[in-house]
Design a protein around this nucleic acid. Structure first.
Lengths: 225, 225
DNA sequence: GTCTATAATTAGATAGAC
DNA sequence: GTCTATCTAATTATAGAC
């Protein structure tokens, strides 16, 4: 009646693992049991697809394969569920994005590789949808937007900025600003090509962007002289 | 009973002026009469604020100061109104953005100025909201996203790319890709600082970005040597 | 054309059985 | 804790008076 059997799959995960301070202090936003996991899985599909206002709790329930009341017994309301979901997805995504170890290696090797890895991570549909939703709801949920800025943008910029600073031969006067240019060019590429469907009308090879970008930072004139 | 007096303000504008092929072939998306103008003004405030699904027709009617039925007599449905509105705002914004004349002048003068002008245009709240909404609804309304890509992104990239190509002393092997880097860095700055509210947690001076960006394109090593 | 009033449907959230 | 059934409010869209 109380404890259902066979939940070893999620039970093996320790409950308290958070690395970032989240909004709802009372409840853990990460998966706690199988039912919450199931709800969040369903919620992810529909919320990333339809956004906050465009998704009904009925659809969430259907996608998760549970009743609405079950959702409301695990999350306070629609807003609480949405916030918990986006926090989770954002943090999950970027615990993997960059490891804790700083970047190292020859710039001519590292920078193109970094760009390729970045594109690889950002090119899957789930991540594109996440980006779209975070921007879409940044008016209604500014805290989620700021979480993304801190956990992802600021983090990436800091790591690459430190790398630039550790390479005096690159002669970069403002490493942080240059890191912004690097990632900003990549993000805006994803934005115009994938999020805004520009690749269907104006496809551009990502290699062209990477080559030009790396050339600018390394040896802007070496290519043609 | 039929023709209300004193509409000279909007009447002075010719009805057929479209420069881009729009989705609804039957009806002109630009302002046709005072009532449509009034509806679109109200719709702009609430749709840019709440997005498509997050805005009710009641709120549009209230914001425009008309009844719902009046809206439905001018636009087919909520979707038609939204599409007409976003098409209009997008095109209006960027008939002014770049003039038809190509860029010219010394790169060291032109590029910083171009960046400053770009920031000035993009920094007002209305434009930030437009950007947010277009990205937000790019899943539901891919045609609107593609209109934005063509009318704005592709256009800007082409103009700056042509300028780069006309300046062989810059030694730019891929002008188009470099133009993407230029505007992409600026857009992603607006995105992280304004749209995602990053300026409240990680403010960065836009002058730092402009300086680094221009330095990269012009004389990457000149600053410190 | 424009408004008020109203249909028909769907939304978020809860009650009560098990 | 979970489900079915239900309540109330809000939503899109339309009918009918003027």
């Amino acid at each position: 009646m109380s404890i259902p059997p066979s939940e070893s799959l999620t039970e093996s995960m320790p409950e308290q693992d958070r690395l970032v301070t989240l909004s709802n202090g009372t409840e853990n936003s990460f998966a706690v049991n199988a039912k919450q996991e199931q709800i969040l899985q369903g919620a992810m599909r529909v919320f990333l697809q339809g956004g906050y206002a465009g998704t009904s709790m009925d659809r969430v329930a259907a996608a998760a394969g549970v009743s609405k009341q079950t959702i409301y017994s695990h999350f306070q309301d629609k807003e609480g569920l949405f916030v918990a979901l986006i926090e989770r997805v954002t943090i999950r995504k970027f615990l993997i994005e960059f490891g804790p170890e700083p970047l190292q290696g020859e710039p001519a090797i590292l920078l193109p590789k970094l760009a390729e890895v970045f594109f690889a991570k950002m090119s899957d549909q789930e991540y594109i949808s996440l980006l779209r939703v975070i921007i879409a709801e940044s008016g209604r949920f500014p805290e989620l937007a700021q979480l993304y800025v801190r956990a992802v943008i600021q983090r990436g910029r800091g790591i690459l900025g430190s790398y630039f600073a550790s390479r005096p031969e690159l002669n970069i006067s403002d490493p942080e600003a240059t890191a912004h240019i690097f990632f900003g060019s990549l993000v805006s590429f994803i934005l115009s090509q994938e999020v805004l469907h520009g690749k269907h009308t104006t496809p551009i090879e990502k290699e062209r962007l990477i080559t030009s970008l790396v050339n600018l930072i390394l040896e802007p004139r070496a290519a043609s002289r």
